[in-house]
Computed example of a mutant assay.
Amino acid sequence: MKSVITGAVGQVEIVEVPRPVPGPADALVRVRACGICGTDGMFLHMGGIPFGPGGSMVPVALGHEPAGEIVEVGAEVDGLRVGDRVVVNPQGAPSGIIGCGGTLGGMSEYLLIENAVVGHSVAVFPDTVPFDVAALNEPMAVARHCVNRSEARPEDKVVVFGAGPIGLGAAIWLKLRGVRHVVVVDLIPERLATALAVGADAVIDSSREDVVARLTELHGPAANALGQPRPGTDIFIDAAGAAAVFTTVTAAAKWKAKLVMVAVQKKSPDIDLGAMLRSELTLIASQGYPTEIFEVTPELATHQDRFARLISHRVPFAEAPRAFELALTPGAAEKVIVTFPNG
């Protein structure tokens, strides 16, 4: 079968590898769609992962956002049958995280599900959901965990920095949670238009608007612990990872506001601890999806039209190198999904 791995720095290769043979406790999935993530870009920029002798780089089998259909089921597997459409928990593989340094990658024609257990390593989704939308399951679980960590209430006023897939996913989950006012901040007009299309109440173009002034206008006036004027924003979500976000939030946070950090930080800024003290700002880190990986699956199906708006490009597997180049070029795409033939 064909599989995508990291090649030279900044490049991928489509290689021939043996098609997996499932054991009695395993299942085999024919991959039908797989998303490209910023984590893939990290491996490309490094040219692999430093698992070789002396920390040398070795290729990485890419793809941790697959959706597909079951083509073989081991005799000991319960709850799965050939033809089921499934999404996968990349962190459920005993051989290592799928597409993130483990031996398996979801950007392949077939993917072995080791120790296939429904609800742990794999979940079935309805055949009414397109495979490309189902491939959003993993990143939407990341976004859902972020929102869960925020403990946002319906009466809260929230701002999301970054209108990439995670930020937009967070905006969707916030609105589905009943949060009354959600603002999305970005500097790419097309992404801000998508934010409004998926349900954000307002957007801010940080390249030409004063973010703090606009938040005060949208969320009303408030103050920090010293009575200094601040926007009435209750929760800030960092889905951008830019140093400017931390700087903006610490300067703008009102008394007892929260900052939820879900983005991989591109560069850690000097944090104004005094400003955090003056607002009693709570910093909450959000990593992965401890419980959310399949919590989101039925809701993804129910609200599939809304989530489908996050996909900007669908690229055939035969053109995978172009798909990765597109996904990793700043501003060129929102969410790229690689699609596979029926086989």
Rank of each mutant, 00 (worst) to 15 (best):
V198I: 13
A143Y: 01
L174F: 01
V77N: 00
S108L: 12
L104E: 13
D156L: 03
E334A: 08
I284C: 02
G35T: 06
V147C: 04
I293V: 15
G105M: 08
V82E: 14
P290H: 12
A33P: 09
K256G: 02
I293K: 15
I70C: 07
L226W: 12
A213D: 12
P90V: 02
K175C: 01
E114V: 01
D305P: 00
T247W: 12
I97S: 10
V245S: 05
I70A: 06
G68Y: 08
P90N: 02
R85W: 10
G38D: 02
P53L: 01
G74K: 10
F340P: 01
K175G: 00
A257W: 04
M276S: 09
V86G: 01
H64S: 04
A243R: 14
S121D: 09
G79E: 06
A252V: 00
H64E: 03
F43W: 09
I235S: 00
M1A: 14
V203T: 15
V82R: 15
G47C: 12
D201V: 04
T297V: 15
W173R: 04
A323M: 04
V264D: 09
E114W: 08
E13T: 08
T247Y: 12
C37H: 04
R278D: 08
E114D: 08
G23T: 05
E16S: 12
F317M: 05
D78F: 08
V60S: 02
A152L: 02
P18T: 02
L310D: 05
G101D: 00
L112R: 14
G106I: 06
V296M: 09
P53F: 03
G106N: 06
A275L: 13
A213Q: 15
N115S: 12
A170V: 08
A320Y: 01
E334G: 13
S150Q: 00
A123R: 13
T128L: 13
V4Y: 07
Q228M: 15
W255V: 04
D305Y: 09
V88G: 00
P24S: 12
H313D: 15
A93Y: 06
L259K: 03
V262Q: 15
R32K: 15
A225M: 14
L187I: 13
C37M: 00
E209A: 05
H145N: 08
I293N: 07
C34P: 04
V9L: 11
D78I: 00
E114N: 07
G83N: 07
I49M: 14
L283W: 06
I166L: 10
G101H: 08
V86P: 06
P290S: 03
M42L: 11
G169V: 05
L328T: 04
V147A: 00
V212T: 15
S312F: 05
H303K: 08
T194M: 13
E292H: 10
E65P: 02
T233K: 11
A116P: 10
E319Y: 02
Q304W: 10
S312C: 08
I188D: 06
F307C: 03
K335Y: 06
L111S: 08
V185N: 03
